[in-house]
């Protein structure tokens, strides 16, 4: 089991770095994450949308609407502050994961 905060933090990095490549809508983010991770990651959709909304409220994302096949679709793009936040989080993540790797993989070396 993952620690809830850790999970939320890592989901945040995932979303921000996906959106750093191109603006996407919610379902597209889910599909992209699944494809890129070859099926390992599957976002719980019920947590994705609140997370997107809270990232927008924090000013890390900005949403806009486009039309697709007669439907309105909400796209999210990363903001300048969002990019900064992502880099900071990424740095934390690197430190954390390398620490985990050092401990976990020690026996296998």
């Amino acid at each position: 089991m993952f620690d809830k905060e850790l999970l939320k933090g890592s989901t945040e990095i995932l979303i921000l770095s996906l959106l750093n490549r191109e603006p996407m809508y919610g379902y597209q983010i889910i599909k992209e994450a699944e494809n890129k991770s070859e099926g390992v990651f599957h976002f719980k959709e019920g947590t994705l949308y609140p997370l997107l909304h809270s990232l927008e409220a924090d000013g890390f994302l900005k949403s806009y609407w486009l039309e697709y096949e007669g439907r309105k679709r909400k796209y999210y793009r990363i903001t300048a502050t969002g990019k900064k936040h992502m880099e900071k989080k990424l740095e934390e993540w690197k430190i954390f994961s390398s620490a985990v790797n050092r401990i976990v993989l020690e026996g296998c070396m």
Binding site: K44, E45, G46, T47, Y49, P50, H53, S54, A57
Partner: peptide, 17 residues
């Protein structure tokens, strides 16, 4: 099913909005 409990999702969105 993938979206999960409507009330839970609603509550989370409520705290943001």
């Amino acid at each position: 099913e993938q979206m999960g409990d409507a009330q839970l999702v609603g509550k989370e969105l409520n705290s943001i909005h």
